[in-house]
Amino acid sequence: MIYCDYAATTPMLDEAMDIYSEINRSYFGNASSLHDFGTKANDYLRHARELIAHCFRAKSENIIFTNGGTEGNILAINTLLRSIPTKDKPHVISTMMEHSSIYYHLLSLEKENQIDVTFLEGNKEGHITIEQVIHAIKPSTKLVTIQYVNGETGVKQPIEEISALLSKKNILFHSDFVQSFGKIHTDVTQLPIDAITVSSHKIYGPKSVGAIYFRNPHVLVHHPIETNHEFGLRPGTVDVAAICAFAVSAKRIHEIAVYEHLYQVRAYFINQLKQKEIPLLPLCSKNSCPSIVGCISNEIQGDYLLLEYNRFNIAISTGSACALGQQEIPRAVLPLLDNEEDGKRYIRFSFSHLTTFEEIDTIIMVSAKIFQRLEEARLAYG
Rank of each mutant, 00 (worst) to 15 (best):
V258M: 06
A380H: 10
Y3F: 15
N228S: 13
I363R: 05
S167C: 05
L307M: 13
E125K: 09
A257D: 15
D88C: 01
H174V: 05
I292Y: 00
Q147T: 13
C289L: 14
P158Q: 00
A48L: 04
V248D: 06
V219T: 15
E375K: 15
L120H: 01
I162E: 06
E125T: 14
P282S: 04
A76N: 01
E341Y: 11
I63D: 00
G182T: 08
E112L: 14
K251R: 13
E50D: 09
L281C: 09
V248Y: 08
Y104A: 10
L305G: 02
Y6Q: 08
S320N: 13
I329G: 04
Q132C: 12
N313A: 11
C244K: 06
E260M: 12
S21T: 11
S320H: 15
L305C: 08
L354N: 11
N78V: 11
A241D: 12
Q132D: 13
E255P: 02
F65R: 00
N298G: 06
A76W: 11
N216K: 12
E160I: 06
L45S: 01
C244G: 07
V133Y: 05
V221M: 10
A41S: 13
E376W: 07
L143G: 07
L283W: 00
F351G: 03
L75G: 02
F231A: 15
E341M: 10
I203L: 06
P335F: 08
Q326E: 14
G236D: 03
G294H: 04
M97N: 11
